[in-house]
Amino acid sequence: MRHACVFFHAHPDDEALLTAGTMARLAAEGHRVVLVVATAGEQGLAAPEAVGEGSLGTVRTAELHASAKALGCARVEFLGYADSGLDGAAVAAPGGPTPFASADVEEAATRLADLLREENASLLTTYDPAGGYGHPDHVRVHHVGARAAEIAGTPVVLEATVDRDLLLRGLRLASKVYPFPPEFDPRTFETAYSPRAAITHKVDVRRYTPAKRQSMAAHVTQATGGDSTRTLAALLRIPRPLFRWTLGTEWYVQRGTPPGRVHRHPLATLTES
């Protein structure tokens, strides 16, 4: 049986970092993959030369469509909210859209629920309660997504996350050979994402890392700008064999799933029920 699977993200490039392999896998298996993004990411960092003469939001929208094509998405939609900025302090321009972090949860959830019902979605992905690393727009994705699934009756909701235990171990090992910049504090990740004990789905996406890499590479603006190396730029420098090993797993939490068993497919709890 083929299913409609909706992946809900805050900004363009979030899909590349957290769920790209799963999206490519489901599309390759014949499922309908739909990418929904709350904002155009117009508050993101980017070097002027990467943006050119257009607005950052316009450029990032085009980048998202290129990423979605690489992953096999059947549809891309924007909820139409404004990017709230890294600290969530962005304010709406006169007559402009509401920043997502301050959007009414019920209103935003209703917009998303309409799309879920239209697609007859079997699966919705959101973020964990911390929003991964705490970005206010990511936290809003968690709340809006959870409520939208309730309204629409979407049976499976997976919170895209990272295995915190593995991440912290990797950072400790990396610190022995790589001098982190002064502004980077690995301790900030001690409360980010989800502990291993909470993870319910560990999805093998190694076969789909070429598409995942292509998705990341589509977001040119997000590999530039700022005072330190951007995450996307650093990941794209990883040699391909190591990239496949390092980024060949994606993690999710499904609330209410009995503990003790980790599923290997994103639709496992649906097909097993």
Rank of each mutant, 00 (worst) to 15 (best):
P266C: 04
F8W: 12
I151A: 05
K202P: 00
A217T: 14
L171Q: 07
G226V: 06
V141C: 15
H11F: 03
G153E: 13
R169G: 14
E159W: 07
A198H: 11
A20I: 01
P258T: 10
L123D: 02
P136Q: 02
H3L: 15
H263T: 06
A16P: 03
T209Q: 05
T188C: 06
R32E: 14
R169C: 05
V144P: 02
A68C: 03
A218S: 09
G85D: 01
Y81G: 01
W251C: 12
A152N: 03
G54I: 12
A66M: 09
E183F: 07
R147S: 00
A50T: 08
D185A: 14
G96R: 06
T257C: 10
K69T: 15
G134F: 07
H138F: 10
P129F: 08
A28W: 02
L166E: 15
L71A: 02
P97G: 01
Y81W: 10
Y252F: 15
S84I: 00
L236D: 03
A28H: 08
L18R: 12
G21R: 03
H265K: 13
H11L: 04
A92E: 14
A148Y: 06
A108T: 08
G225C: 03
G30H: 11
K212N: 04
D14Y: 05
A47Y: 01
G256R: 13
Y208G: 08
A148C: 02
R117L: 14
F189I: 06
S194F: 04
E150R: 13
G54A: 14
T125S: 13
V33S: 02
K69R: 15
G54T: 15
A16W: 03
A92T: 06
A233Y: 13
D83E: 12
S55G: 14
V139E: 11
A16I: 04
H31K: 11
